[in-house]
Simulated scan of single mutants.
Amino acid sequence: MSLDEKCLLADIVIDNSQDLIHTRRQVEQVVKELSDERNHSVVKTESDSSAKYVLPGDEITSDQTFMRGHGTYLSTLNDDKQLMASIAGVVEPINRLISVRPLRTRYNGEIGDVIVGRITEVQSKRWRVETNARLDSVLQLSGVNLPGGELRRKTAEDEVLMRNYLKEGDIISAEVQNIFDDGSLGLHTRSLKYGKLGQGILIRVSPSLVERRKNHFHKLPIGANMILGNNGFVWISQVIAEGTESGGHVIDFSDIALQERETMARLRNCTLGLAKHKVMLNDTSVSYAYEVSVQLGYQPKDLLMPEVVAVIAEQTKLRLNEFEGMDLN
């Protein structure tokens, strides 16, 4: 081998070594980011204090009595089959079934979920709805309420008038009725509490931060209504009088008072601040954040500053921990 060839081979070896060092540094950076996210993750309780975070390729267990769930696979490299993580997330064991819940993901709907979505297309006998999922959801004409809550078989005339009910750009609340074979969701708005939404603010957060509860429609004592959609879409609006639900067929477009607009803006900024700091969203946490922002004398516009949001989130976590401690006692 000539001297030039030896020098060329040495350069290749050096380049490959540098690439390996660079790749290792990238992996270490990802692990550090996930560790930081874990440290600033949702408010910890007794049930999630021992949560196990994994990266793709990490071993979860070698016990073969466990069943493989979403986000896992069986390694066949060794004689002993090991259950490995295929995604980065939190290990969630349910009896003998082990799954990994991803830290960041699109919405994976379940039957009975309450969602907030936007109409994207009007098709034959159905609407396409953007729900933060991998595929657009479907709202069938047979799954909506007619004006006045009338229940009857839909006719060809109803199909012609579909755009009078819902059109592109309309915001709706609905419930997941079924899941199709391709993974898309089937929706319905047969209850008068669902349907077209009027004036309000729509914000988007991670679906994993919305806590699953029996009720996702909240009339907050601060003077605003909030719908915490399981799909990560949150709707904030003015207070609606009890018993005036119309399924979205009667909408009040009158001017909203300045005080109510300020309340909605403050609530919107508090909700986004909690989501940024990975605090689970429910009516309690959002109300606490709102009250803390008022007590500390911040204006709604101040809640857009990162340092202020950090203070609000930290104080909210402390109040939630105190509240959970009282429940345990």
Score class of each variant (00 low, 15 high):
residue 264 M to N: 01
residue 11 D to L: 14
residue 119 I to Y: 02
residue 97 L to A: 04
residue 290 Y to C: 04
residue 164 N to R: 11
residue 53 Y to Q: 02
residue 102 P to V: 01
residue 298 Y to N: 06
residue 318 L to R: 15
residue 3 L to H: 13
residue 310 A to T: 09
residue 4 D to P: 00
residue 221 P to W: 01
residue 112 G to L: 06
residue 124 S to C: 02
residue 224 A to T: 07
residue 300 P to L: 03
residue 127 W to H: 03
residue 310 A to D: 05
residue 112 G to A: 04
residue 154 K to F: 15
residue 52 K to G: 00
residue 117 G to D: 05
residue 223 G to P: 02
residue 55 L to Y: 04
residue 276 K to R: 14
residue 226 M to Q: 04
residue 278 K to N: 15
residue 273 G to T: 08
residue 283 D to Y: 05
residue 70 H to L: 12
residue 125 K to Q: 13
residue 108 N to I: 08
residue 106 R to L: 14
residue 238 Q to M: 06
residue 260 E to H: 09
residue 160 V to E: 10
residue 268 R to S: 10
residue 95 N to C: 03
residue 289 A to W: 06
residue 249 H to K: 03
residue 226 M to W: 00
residue 179 I to W: 01
residue 56 P to L: 03
residue 114 V to I: 15
residue 318 L to G: 01
residue 36 D to K: 08
residue 127 W to D: 05
residue 173 S to D: 04
residue 253 F to D: 08
residue 184 S to N: 12
residue 272 L to W: 03
residue 21 I to D: 07
residue 66 F to Y: 15
residue 5 E to S: 09
residue 48 D to C: 06
residue 242 E to M: 06
residue 262 E to A: 08
residue 110 E to H: 12
residue 263 T to L: 03
residue 126 R to S: 11
residue 138 V to I: 15
residue 62 S to T: 12
residue 92 E to D: 09
residue 84 M to P: 04
residue 75 S to C: 10
residue 92 E to F: 07
residue 322 E to N: 11
residue 4 D to S: 13
residue 255 D to T: 11
residue 240 I to V: 15
residue 28 E to N: 08
residue 71 G to C: 06
residue 218 H to Q: 08
residue 319 R to H: 07
residue 43 V to Q: 08
residue 35 S to V: 12
residue 64 Q to S: 13
residue 134 R to P: 00
residue 310 A to N: 02
residue 165 Y to D: 00
residue 114 V to L: 11
residue 219 K to E: 10
residue 20 L to G: 00
residue 138 V to E: 05
residue 219 K to D: 10
residue 258 L to K: 12
residue 105 T to V: 05
residue 132 N to P: 02
residue 23 T to F: 14
residue 13 V to D: 12
residue 40 H to N: 15
residue 41 S to G: 15
residue 171 I to Y: 05
residue 42 V to Q: 09
residue 292 V to W: 03
residue 284 T to V: 14
residue 28 E to Y: 07
residue 24 R to E: 10
residue 274 L to A: 01
residue 93 P to I: 04
residue 265 A to S: 13
residue 153 R to C: 01
residue 169 G to F: 08
residue 178 N to M: 07
residue 241 A to W: 00
residue 276 K to W: 04
residue 188 H to V: 02
residue 190 R to N: 07
residue 150 E to M: 10
residue 286 V to N: 03
residue 162 M to C: 08
residue 247 G to V: 02
residue 160 V to Q: 13
residue 297 G to W: 06
residue 289 A to T: 02
residue 197 L to I: 01
residue 329 N to H: 12
residue 234 V to F: 02
residue 131 T to A: 11
residue 94 I to V: 13
residue 326 M to D: 10
residue 13 V to Y: 09
residue 177 Q to S: 13
residue 148 G to I: 04
residue 158 D to G: 04
residue 151 L to Y: 08
residue 6 K to Y: 06
